[in-house]
Design a protein around this nucleic acid. Structure first.
Lengths: 249, 249
DNA sequence: CGTGTTTTTGCGGTTTTTTGCAATTATGTA
DNA sequence: TACATAATTGCAAAAAACCGCAAAAACACG
């Protein structure tokens, strides 16, 4: 069996069961432990899975249960602070969920007067702490993974509003492929959010740039503002993005 | 089972119940006590939980326990535990907000299969921790005081559903005046919730009994179940309530 | 086709990690 | 205080990971 075939086999197992045991793979693929370990290490280097003593776990599995510690918190705070400059008194804003957006809300100026629509209950609770912000929570089926409202009724409600700016995080952004995602419902949701907004801002830590996932949300030129933790000079994509009218923050 | 998986399992239990017993984990994970103790110690080193004699507690629980902002927490826990007996597999339930309802959600049995509608984002987030509970968050204008969705759109959405049981806290309950409130919008909301439900349960600490506020929500006989922290014998209203077909828990 | 190079793979030996056991100590409770 | 339960410690066996090496296979190129 070719190495590539083994890698594909391992990734199938990972996607199916979220985990693999070294010992199982030795039996199934009929190669030595060392070979399996080398395979796993290579897949780790490609960022495709997570290695632990005794086997490996899928990346999504790992991140979804690790909710007590926010990953890359420092970067997210930098992004959040930058993003607040987009918000002016009197604006009507729509936000998604996620730790970066939540951090953004915490950084807003105390006396901001604005109206916020949001699909995230945690964001709503945080926004409610501001006296002069009107909060409208958009409800629907509640996603256990992403902790936001989703589904048909959310899409319907979004189709009835038009806001100045929509603000969301993303799992992947690529100069050619644009914004992409893995979950179909979240994908639909983001499309509807963009359609409901005059302008859009995407909050994205740099390591998620230049990654492409299965489902396309929108092309790169649909994004009005990209907010990362990098300086403009350090952002290699900068010229390409500017060409597509994406403002960099 | 891999060590990482055990750690994730433990953290899930902690997030769900705010505590774990060493002895329970030994049975559930089928490893020796020593292994569990080492696991717990490692999670302590990672700052993810708090170790005590006999098991471990969640960090948030520990801090919220010290946090005296939750008034009469002990009574509310008693009420919450009693109220869980009203919920059976397969039920469709509607809940309001408030600390007592939130505590109720935390006390639900781990594998409950049910559908919950709620107007409270915090309740939704807490419910989402249960694998077999479907959560539908009802959105609308968000109340800074009561931390729930309210207003016309909520009333509309409530008019479209019919659930088995509606569960809410209250600020006042009186044998003659029934359930009363001070806030007009919350008043309307509660009426709509009751109208959307076949049966209703009111969670109420005893000190709010025999109080009357300005706005009437419903007469006493509209309440199917009253849950307080008292024993039946200590509840002076008991005969009167039974006469009006209110079940006491 | 032949030869030198790179890649892949398995093996032996060593080190690290994990786990359970037993003996001891600590803790909480009647 | 005494007793039961839980925690700690040291230890040893088993499992897994690591390291260097060499055989085998695949590849490149004249």
């Amino acid at each position: 069996m070719l190495k590539k075939e083994r890698h594909d086999f391992i990734m199938r197992q990972i996607n199916l069961h979220n985990r693999v045991l070294t010992s199982d793979l030795v039996q199934l693929l009929n190669v030595s432990e060392d070979t399996i370990r080398r395979d796993l290490q290579e897949l780790v280097d490609l960022g495709k899975l997570y290695k632990v003593h005794g086997g490996a776990l899928s990346k999504s599995y790992h991140s979804s249960f690790d909710d007590s510690t926010v990953y890359a918190r420092d970067s997210k705070i930098i992004i959040a602070k930058k993003a607040t400059s987009l918000i002016k008194d009197g604006m009507v804003v729509l936000t998604g969920g996620g730790t970066t957006v939540l951090e953004f809300v915490k950084q807003l100026p105390e006396n901001l007067e604005a109206t916020f629509f949001t699909i995230s209950p945690l964001v709503a609770v945080e926004l409610a702490k501001y006296n002069n912000i009107e909060v409208i929570l958009i409800g629907g089926s509640f996603s256990k993974n992403s902790q936001v409202s989703y589904g048909g009724s959310v899409i319907n409600q979004l189709s009835e509003i038009k806001v100045d700016l929509c603000l969301m995080g993303t799992s992947a952004l690529h100069p050619d492929a644009g914004m992409t995602d893995t979950d179909w419902e979240i994908n639909q949701l983001k499309k509807a959010m963009l359609a409901a907004s005059k302008k859009s801002a995407v909050l994205c830590i740099s390591e998620k740039l230049e990654i492409t996932l299965r489902l396309k949300v929108c092309p790169i030129e649909s994004i009005s503002y990209l907010v990362t933790e990098l300086n403009n000079d350090d952002l290699l994509l900068q010229p390409y993005l500017s060409k597509n009218n994406v403002n960099i923050l």
